[in-house]
Design a protein around this nucleic acid. Sequence first.
DNA 1: ATCAGTTGCTTCGAATCCGAAGCATTTGAC
DNA 2: GTCAAATGCTTCGGATTCGAAGCAACTGAT
Lengths: 170, 170
Amino acid sequence: MTSTPPPLDATQLGAYFALIEASSLLKHSVEQQLRDAGDLSYVQFQLLATLGDSPTGSRRMTDLADGVVYSRSGLTYQAQTLEKRGLVTRSQSSDDERGVTVTITEEGRAVLAEVFPGHVAVLDDLLFAPLTRADVETLADILARARDHMRQTPPRSAGARRRKKAAAAD
Amino acid sequence: MTSTPPPLDATQLGAYFALIEASSLLKHSVEQQLRDAGDLSYVQFQLLATLGDSPTGSRRMTDLADGVVYSRSGLTYQAQTLEKRGLVTRSQSSDDERGVTVTITEEGRAVLAEVFPGHVAVLDDLLFAPLTRADVETLADILARARDHMRQTPPRSAGARRRKKAAAAD
DNA sequence: ATCAGTTGCTTCGAATCCGAAGCATTTGAC
DNA sequence: GTCAAATGCTTCGGATTCGAAGCAACTGAT
């Protein structure tokens, strides 16, 4: 029974659709450029960029997955792929025996450098071209707030593993 | 020709990352809700919603694919899936022998109605909660401009087939 | 120390996705 | 009319994705 009429007005719908469409279109174009320039998928680029941004060039798997909004298993797959191509190395974390530290290689940095200018060019052409400086600032502010809110609002059934015990007092 | 890395300033980077992260996080949560509420993927929901929005309840495949930012083959797959579940029907277009018209069924509308309130709830909780009314208006305006720009800016290296203008009458 | 619970990552199976190739129809040029 | 190119969609093959289950290591309490 749909007893609750949609409390979304036209403006909200517009913002929602525009958000989804814009990010989809942008992602598609970026993906194409990355594929052409360095044979990288978007996730792979994100991973390399995240690693390259780190002072040590390394991160733990979980941190990577969280940063990129990705599943653990998907990250394992991509990390393996990147390792096979020699763009990253994987090693046991020093303090935690079961932790895996991923580190970008020189080769990885090279690919990153290869791809980056084109990446930026796509962003300039598609995203920033029709926007003023003030628009970009405003956009960054609003979306950052939304993102932060989502980050700290736990999905109803994701994130932590289901607790089997203590079900009664959950 | 990669001699001039166009620099992105902090604000631009912030806007870009926030856009990607926010849309990713939102999409993930929405996907979960749709899966739980009606066993629909996000694309499937988008398709049903698009069809439901049409006065006739029908659209041609290509128009659907464009609207949802999806590959043709992916759309074929999803249309088949939805047809198997009885949520849409597919039939030959009247004026074009090779065109396929997809139409939402009563069952499809029912599922849509079933899922919609929860969908809206997620949007309210995650996207709109931390934003003011003015924020939403601004966001809609800016992103709509960006989206429109992307829509009419063809991918530079895409050897995609040229597509003509679609008929306005529906 | 030991046990149960938690966490980090991987493996597994299945679903989904895309691009390229293919088929059928339409369009445009001649 | 006929042919070549363009268009609409599907099929095919392969890559990517996720959740669930599994294994190993850490933690805290006893």
